[in-house]
Each structure stands twice: as C-alpha cells, then as structure tokens.
C-alpha cells in the first residue's frame, strides 16, 4: 500500500469515527474505542495503546484534522478550530460563555481568543443576560447586513424589499430569534421576538403575517390583561382586528 492509499484509508477511518461519535472533536482514548480489530491492526495499535501512539499512527494525515493537548488528554478536531467552535456555538443556542467554554476542549485563554476572533469577523453576536452573563449566538452575516440596510428604509414595502432581500434569510433570522427568546418553549411572546430582532415595525408585521399565512408559524390570541401596554402594542394585530400575543413554530425553513 502506497502513502497516498494509506492516507486515504486513514482519512476514511477518521471520518467513520467522527460519524459514529456525532461530535466534531474526540479524545484520542475514546477514538481508540471506536476502532474494530481490523482497523487497530491496520494502524498497528492495541485497544490499550497510549494517546501518543494513536497520534503517531494517524499523523500521516494532515489536513483537515488537527490534534491539540487539553489537560491530560489529546483531542482530535474534525477541521479548523474556528469553524468547529462556530458550529459548536450554533448547535448550543443561547448558552453563556462559561457554559460553552466548559464543554469545549481547549484551554480558556484559547477559547477567549477564538470567540473574540469570531466576534470581530461578525460571525457571532453577544448579549448580556439579566444575570450579567455573556450569551453567545451565531449570526448569518449576509442577513445582518441586509437587515441593517432594511432598517434604514422603514417605509419600503415588503414586496419591494423581498426582491432585494432573501425572505428565507429573514425567516431564518426570525426562527433564530424565536428559539433564542423562547429557549425551547412552544409559545413565544411576539413582543419579545420583535424586541430581540429590532427590525422596523412594518417589516416585522408584514413578515410575521406572511409567515402565518404560509404556515411557518401559528399565532395565538392570549390575555392582553396580563401584559403591559407597551407589550400589547408590540404584539401583532391583523387587519380584522384580531390580536395575537404568542407564536408557535410550525414549519421548517
């Protein structure tokens, strides 16, 4: 077997392990446990081989994998660290910096650097929670750019805007806001989503009504008496005078 063939086989073996593991990073000891006898023998490893031996065995394959030391372990990452961190943050919506750092296998300083880089690049946004913690969530860069421009053209109608902007992206933004605000609840307050997104009133109302008509969301009446006047105002009223207070997500984008 020549080197190229060997590289290819190791790559496919690593891919398989990541597939089984379901995460983009894996401790080398755990990595070993996913290998069957044949694969172990191919890599000239034993079930109890030390981490250095595993690293050496798979090292012929360079890109796109990388191995980093974390505490007493060595961790294999399935790609560039920034990309993996971004995907990891996206998957774990609306978690605090501390919670995210706890389960991501790089030292704190390195994780801070990673997050700062992603923030600088506009891939991440941060908010301070009421308990004064930093909450991170990912941002679709293109959509953000579009939204900033949209805010300037408050009076433009949605039909015209939809030509310029990708409605699907806006819906996707709405969906992110829905999950961020609702934290998994099935009924999320419209006024909270509205405030979270900070779009123009017209744009928000028209998009929401379109989404209701197309079945992306179901909007529900509620009890305005339990809300403050401003919150009622920031809910949604259709042309028949029906007031909607909460929405539930129904259809995937």
């Amino acid at each position: 077997m020549n080197t190229a063939e060997k590289d290819l086989k190791i790559t496919s073996l690593i891919e398989n392990v990541f597939k089984k593991h379901g995460k983009d990073f894996i401790n080398l000891k755990t990595f070993l446990s996913y290998l069957d006898k044949k694969e172990l023998s191919f890599l000239q490893l034993k079930p109890n081989s030390i981490q250095d031996a595993v690293e050496k065995a798979i090292s012929p394959v360079k890109s796109p994998y990388q191995i980093k030391k974390f505490k007493q372990s060595k961790v294999l990452f399935n790609g560039p660290l920034a990309e993996i961190a971004l995907a990891y943050i996206e998957k774990r919506k609306a978690k605090t910096f501390g919670q995210l750092n706890k389960d991501f296998p790089v030292i704190k300083g390195e994780f801070i650097d990673l997050v700062n880089t992603l923030l600088d690049q506009g891939c991440l946004r941060a908010r301070i929670s009421t308990s004064e913690k930093i909450i991170l969530y990912t941002v679709d860069k293109k959509a953000t750019q579009l939204l900033t421009e949209t805010a300037k053209t408050e009076d433009a109608d949605l039909f015209a805007m939809s030509k310029a902007f990708d409605t699907r992206t806006l819906i996707s933004q709405f969906k992110d806001a829905y999950y961020n605000v609702g934290k998994g609840a099935n009924y999320v307050f419209i006024h909270q989503i509205r405030n979270f997104l900070g779009w123009s009133r017209k744009q928000f109302d028209e998009l929401l009504y379109q989404m209701m008509k197309q079945g992306y969301v179901a909007a529900h009446p509620g009890n305005p008496g339990a809300l403050m006047a401003q919150e009622v105002r920031d809910s949604f009223q259709d042309e028949y005078g029906d007031l909607y207070i909460t929405v539930s997500w129904r259809k995937s984008v």
Partner: peptide, 17 residues
C-alpha cells in the same frame, strides 16, 4: 376601534380593515 385592557392601562387601536 378596538379596546384592549392591558395590565397598566387601556389601549385603543384603529382597525385597518
């Protein structure tokens, strides 16, 4: 017109349709 009673006051809205 529509009248909504909120926690901290009464809201009046104009019906578009």
């Amino acid at each position: 017109f529509n009248i909504f009673r909120a926690k901290d006051g009464i809201l009046i809205s104009l019906k578009v349709h």
